[in-house]
Amino acid sequence: MNARVWLVVLILLQPIASWAQGYAGLGGSADGFDVPKRDYQFEFPRDHGPHPTYRIEWWYLTANLTGEDGRDYGIQWTLFRSALKPSEADGWQSPQLWMGHAAVTTPETHYFAERLSRGGIGQAGVAADPFEAWIDEWYMRGPDLNTVSLSASGAEFAYDLDLTAQGPLVFHGDAGYSVKSADGQASYYYSQPFFEVEGVLNLPDGDVAVTGHGWLDREWSSQPLASDQTGWDWFSLSFDDGDKLMAFRLRGGRGDFTAATWISPDGTTTPLPNGSASFTPLNTTRVAGRDVPTEWHVTLPDRGLDVEVSAMTPDAWMATQFEYWEGPVTVKGSHTGRGYLEMTGY
């Protein structure tokens, strides 16, 4: 690789290298960037688009699917934006950098792929109206965020899916202001957890028609973690009775910080503050040279929730520029259902 190519690689990876501090640099200084404040007035479709004066942002979609073959599958499609400085510019002067992750998880195997891009040159970006998020040939797009088509591919997989929202957007924390630490770090955070999904997975053994349910998370901030927080365990669970749960545990030197949102079938939300939920690892799996919890006991006494959450495919490791675990899970106990689990910092 010649010196010019190495320079481009270093430019592209600069924010990823900084993200290694406090997992993904999310506990680093927000100097010069905007920071979330309470009582933000969300406006759509504007806020489906990018917020370049904030340091970090993502469009994060996961889906639990069932194939015409009767087997369960999971997919991930994620576009991350990271800013070198709080502004936007055309061409190579743009300080915005983009990273895409895509994955398909089968009961036996986890396939994943990654894309990197500099902003300002048309290779990656997000437009709010009509909605389109893309990096290279990967895309999530539609007339708005209620009806979108989704496409991605890697060396051993591809998928083309159509998603239609069957419920409203939901806002986490205090009307979308999601606190992440006792020190008050926060993000803006809303979700569309009511997507119905249908389409086709292209896998080494052939094409599989699938249907299921998807969950989109939208989040942006400039310093969402405290400096001592090293990673998180994040759950999005859809129960067979129609209720849903978003819950997370942030691990830090001063102890865990937790939060949750209970989502009723009609989209009514109940925010649950730090300490409301408990997360206890039951079993670990040796993945990529580390021990990763792949079975959990999750309780939420305020809602009578007492469940075991188990990975469908324990080695669903994303060996990307910054590594993490991401995959579909099953739920049994007081509630039954399916969902997704993300774990970072292990």
Score class of each variant (00 low, 15 high):
Arg4Glu: 15
Tyr54Thr: 12
Ala182Trp: 08
Leu250Arg: 03
Ala24Phe: 11
Asp302Ser: 12
Gln21Val: 15
Gly70Tyr: 04
Thr270Trp: 03
Leu169Ala: 09
Ser29Gln: 13
Val104Lys: 08
Lys85Thr: 11
Pro50Lys: 10
Val208Lys: 12
Ala260Ser: 10
Thr164Cys: 09
Leu12Cys: 11
Thr299Tyr: 00
Ala17Val: 14
Gly339Phe: 03
Pro314Trp: 04
Arg118Tyr: 08
Gly22Pro: 05
Phe235Cys: 01
Ala30Asp: 11
Tyr73Asn: 04
Ala133Cys: 01
Leu245Ala: 02
Thr53Cys: 06
Gly28His: 08
Gln321Leu: 07
Val197Thr: 10
Val126Cys: 01
Leu12Thr: 10
Ala24Lys: 11
Pro86Glu: 10
Pro45Lys: 08
Phe248Cys: 00
Trp19Asp: 15
Glu108Thr: 11
Gly173Pro: 02
Gly199Pro: 12
Pro204Phe: 10
Leu26Arg: 13
Val104Glu: 00
Arg55Gly: 08
Ile121Val: 15
His213Tyr: 11
Arg303Asp: 06
Ser238Met: 10
Met343Glu: 08
Gln14Arg: 12
Phe44Cys: 12
Asn274Pro: 00
Gln185Asp: 09
Asn202Lys: 14
Leu225Met: 11
Ala277Gln: 05
Val9Lys: 11
Gly184Ile: 10
Arg251Ala: 09
Leu97Phe: 11
Pro273Asp: 12
Arg249Glu: 14
Leu225Pro: 03
Thr320Gly: 06
Ser238Tyr: 05
Ala319Asn: 15
Phe322Glu: 13
Gly275Leu: 03
Lys37Arg: 15
Lys180Cys: 06
Met140Arg: 14
Phe80Val: 03
Ala83Gln: 14
Asn64Met: 10
Ala113Tyr: 06
Arg218Glu: 00
Arg254Thr: 14
Leu341His: 11
Tyr190Ala: 02
Phe112Trp: 12
Ala316Ile: 02
Ser181Val: 06
Lys332Asp: 11
Trp215Lys: 03
Met312Asn: 08
Asp233Gln: 09
Ile121Ser: 04
Trp59His: 05
Trp325Glu: 07
Phe194Trp: 01
Asp129Asn: 15
Gly304Tyr: 02
Pro281Gln: 09
Ile75Ser: 07
Ser149Arg: 13
Trp296Thr: 12
Glu295Trp: 01
Pro293Arg: 07
Glu68Leu: 09
Ala247Val: 09
Gln229Pro: 03
Pro107Arg: 09
Arg46Ile: 11
Gly339Cys: 05
His335Ile: 02
Tyr139Glu: 02
Gly289Arg: 05
Ala209Glu: 13
Pro50Trp: 01
Asp47Arg: 11
Gly125Leu: 01
